[in-house]
Amino acid sequence: MININDLKYDNGLIAAIAQDNETKEVLMCAFMNREALQRTIDTKIAHYWSRSRQSLWKKGESSGHIQKIIDIRIDCDMDAVLLLVEQTGGACHTGFRSCFYRNIEGEEIGEKIFDPDKVY
Rank of each mutant, 00 (worst) to 15 (best):
M1H: 08
N5Q: 14
N5K: 15
N5P: 11
D6P: 11
L7C: 13
Y9L: 02
D10K: 06
N11C: 06
I17K: 00
A18P: 03
D20T: 12
N21D: 13
N21V: 13
N21C: 10
V26L: 10
L27R: 04
L27C: 07
M28L: 10
F31M: 12
N33F: 04
R34M: 05
L37S: 06
T40W: 03
I41E: 06
I41M: 14
T43D: 09
I45F: 01
R51Q: 11
S52N: 07
S52L: 05
R53L: 14
S55V: 04
W57K: 10
K58A: 03
K59R: 06
K59T: 03
G64F: 03
I66V: 10
K68Y: 05
K68T: 07
D71R: 07
R73V: 08
R73T: 08
R73H: 08
I74N: 07
D75G: 12
M78S: 15
L83Q: 05
Q87I: 12
H93Y: 09
R97P: 02
Y101A: 13
Y101D: 08
R102A: 15
R102Q: 15
E107T: 15
E108K: 15
I109Q: 11
G110C: 08
E111S: 13
E111Y: 11
E111A: 07
E111N: 13
F114I: 02
F114C: 10
K118G: 01
V119I: 14
Y120R: 10
